[in-house]
Write a protein that binds this DNA or RNA. Sequence first.
DNA 1: AAGTACATCAACCGCACGCAT
DNA 2: GATGCGTGCGGTTGATGTACT
Length: 294
Amino acid sequence: MGRKPCCSKEGLRKGTWTAKEDMLLTNYINEHGEVGWRSLPMKAGLLRCGKSCRLRWVNYLKPGIKRGNFTSEEEDLIVRLYNLLGSRWSLIAGRIPGRTDNEIKNYWNTHLLKKLKSEGLEPKIHKSLAKNTRRQKEKANVSSQINQKGYKEKKKRNKKGNIEENCNNIEEKEQVAKKIEEQWHTQDSVQAMSGFSSTSEVASEKETNCNNVHCPSSGQSLEENDNEIYEKLQVIDELLLNDNCLLPTECTEFNSESQMLEVYEEYFQLVSENSFYHFQDYAHSFAEFGQDDL
DNA sequence: AAGTACATCAACCGCACGCAT
DNA sequence: GATGCGTGCGGTTGATGTACT
């Protein structure tokens, strides 16, 4: 039995959104939150498909979305991440604050690809489609250690906000990254990851934000929160930015490409779920790094 | 000014997955 | 385990803008 369409297409508007539609959607979500996309259009008084509403919100209306040109740091990061992960735009977007998968995808296809080719830098060709990759992963039995039940249990726990298990996994992966941990990266790399442009800016941002930051899910202050996980993430970040590990074939830290991708998928999932803290932690680390360095 | 080609990017579409039943 | 629903993802399309003739 095939899937029903996500919504009846009769009488629904398509194409570019008007300012009035944007306002209706924004007002509704501000009041009720991002819940029930299917029923949202009717409740908000919009003649749009729920998927269309979600896309509009996620890509353009949601607060914190950065518009405008990509910086060279962002470009560099996108290229690195593409080399690692291929067209997993949502994962890549999760690593670049304020940018959406759609925007990055468009930018890649219209600008970066041409730019790289003109510079004689052919990007690594990845097997297209994440869904195929997932199938390949299944075939390769990458997650053979995790049976279906265990996997579901793990997901449930994660959803409840319990990141302890992930943390332990990262800890295991940390052993893999340990060898190159000492190769601390240049300030440029850290800046690219943190989104700040100078040490003083980072320090200032740290001062402004870190003192009174609260966890959206638990309400814990940053000080109370477990910073350990972010230190671990940082180690993986180091690995991520290690030029020697840009291409799985050149990276000796993993036994196989699938193993490497598994580590990164888990990592990105974790980062996406906790991106705000990670961002702050990076600022924190960078400030300390700058101080130690002086 | 008009016509055409090309570039850009917002939005759509189909599929797969997680979850509830 | 089977089924259906809601959601998110990645590939693609097409409307619009811009450059060129």
